[in-house]
Design a protein around this nucleic acid. Structure first.
Lengths: 347, 347
DNA sequence: TTGTACGCGTTATCAT
DNA sequence: ATGATAACGCGTACAA
């Protein structure tokens, strides 16, 4: 593998001269500059990130730390396959690669899973990672404490964890749910049912608060028993729907608002099984806008989390945190978007 | 950040002694060994991978190079979100992390997309990546040629590209499709329809060959016009089904075998739209076993690609290629599994 | 422009 | 048998 010394020797100059050309310093003659450039191009020379990182104390590495909550794996696996985190990480990577940072995927393996916190901490340290994305859940706060021992900027997703240069980003779940209910009201729905989050996740709570607030504002009615809870999985949505079927009929509920798409899918499954058509007999609204939502039958009306925007903001914020010590770790709220499709019809 | 010199100083020994302890060399006294160990533990010391990589000429980095074929993005996006590659990469990462390798996600950004080959080559070189997974498509062979300029072991997925220590892995698509038709025959189906791949991907062709071979072996009939092609997207499956609807009815076809799950979903959509029940009026079989297959209504009978196994084999092979120069780059065929659910019933 | 020291480990080589 | 000294890997930065 070609090194900077090779280039220097072939060009008949010092390593310093080559280094200056590489880094675009001005104090180098045009003639030597061109000569060096040519030789580098000819040999396809690429400076070693390891070596330059060693002196500069940087790795140009951003890690993704996926820290699953075993109990809640069902609806949203915390790995690259996740329908929610996958798109975010992707768009973040697109941004980062434009800024010459690369993405390292840290996913604690089965054997290290017990003390994954330690494993992640060590990895971050060993690799001199410049910043990381922490994807986890409130229930993991204790297990993650060790991460605070290493002082690296981070963006938290799904868990707001205080610490060194620790930023946080989430969708405006409150507003999103509020917006959803408002839309239902606009369509003339007056009696609604909700499917919330069994596990008291931050996002689940905010969606509930936003929805309930809108229900009050617009004077809607939620009959007794028309709020059920699920674990964000499709089955849970189906179960929830079945358990509310009787109330929906007797109380003339016209729409079910599930707090994520998968539970909405499940609710629709159940409706069909129960001989109800969607949205003919009952409308169903989701939350997230996962890929499948558009392809579902009926296509799901839902509240979109803008994953592309989130990914970009994450990348941008991380780089600012890394490169500008004055930059304060932000707490970002990303607006959601109402996506009107066909699972909700006028009341 | 603590360095090896810090440890050495605090322990009152030389860097060499510390290094020997880190690497478990035998020529070190038990007393000093323990002393050094204690200090390292106390300070939470982790040797820099950059520094050790610099001397050892290793990075313990495996890259994933996602090289999309613009034309075929529809059914199978070549990124982490892919329903097919995502699980493979995940399981591979699980294996690699046990062997102390980490996964670097290289996804050429929009601006570098034109000459992505060069971008990837440079990244691999700069980071001194130890090995990589190349995910692409035959149509990209020319664009990827530059990758061969860098001599790093690789595993190819979706594209068989000769080169330095270049291995290849795929599902046994031929056998899988054969197996599928055999199963249909077992259930008494005699007149069948196929939905193949418009783009002549390797896997698509093998599936077609395997299916046709089995059709001959078991003496089944494919009526004229009962083979259509799609681009592996759901819509294509739907279109294919609609275009064959007439023939299916008139020729008493009892089952449609789509060469991927998404087209199977689309075919089922169309069947429903056309007032046919699945599997009552027509059976539908898929290929891949993506996550959704189990949750679909009706749950999809399909041929599973064993992504978990593939990921592990990829990791294992890469490490062997890296660490043992005698190891010959293998061409692996991974067997598929027939997954019987409810979209196919006896004829 | 160049020489030189430095960043952080590893590995001969050598001394006890 | 143990452990120290010194050179090295590949770039960058500072003084000259």
């Amino acid at each position: 593998m070609t090194t900077i010394s090779d280039i220097a020797r072939l060009a008949g100059v010092s390593k310093t001269a080559v280094s200056k050309v590489i880094n675009g310093h001005a104090d180098i003659g045009e003639a030597t500059r061109r000569k060096i450039m040519n030789i580098m191009a000819e040999l396809n020379y690429r400076p070693s990130v390891l070596a330059r990182g060693l002196t500069l104390g940087k790795s140009w590495l951003i890690a993704v730390c996926l820290f699953p909550d075993q109990a809640h794996m069902s609806g949203r696996a915390h790995n690259l396959e996740s329908r929610f985190y996958g798109p975010i990480i992707n768009s973040c990577n697109d941004y980062l690669s434009q800024r010459d940072y690369d993405l390292l995927v840290l996913s604690s393996n089965p054997t290290t899973r017990e003390n994954a916190g330690v494993w992640y901490r060590d990895k971050l340290q060993e690799r001199r990672v410049d910043g990381y994305i922490l994807i986890s859940h409130v229930s993991q706060l204790a297990a993650l404490a060790t991460l605070n021992e290493v002082q690296i900027p981070r963006m938290c997703l799904g868990i707001k964890m205080p610490g060194f240069r620790s930023a946080y980003i989430e969708s405006n779940n409150y507003r999103g749910a509020h917006q959803g209910v408002q839309y239902l009201h606009t369509l003339g729905h007056r009696r609604i049912a909700l499917i919330g989050d069994t596990n008291s996740s931050m996002s689940g709570r905010h969606r509930m608060q936003g929805a309930l607030q809108a229900v009050r504002e617009y004077g809607l009615t939620i009959p007794d028993g028309a709020i059920t809870y699920g674990d964000f999985s499709r089955h849970a949505g189906s179960d929830a729907m079945k358990s509310m079927a009787e109330i929906i009929r007797s109380e003339r509920v016209t729409v079910v608002f599930a707090f994520n798409d998968y539970m909405a899918f499940g609710a629709i499954d159940a409706a069909h099984e129960l001989g109800m058509s969607v949205p003919g007999d009952i409308s169903v609204m989701g939350f997230d806008d996962v890929e499948l939502a558009a392809d579902f039958h009926p296509a799901l009306t839902t509240i979109r989390q803008n994953t592309a925007v989130m990914g970009e903001i994450i990348g941008e914020s991380l780089i600012k945190l890394i490169e500008d010590s004055q930059f304060e770790p932000p707490e970002v709220m990303v607006d959601t978007t109402l996506v009107i499709r066909s699972s909700v019809s006028p009341a």
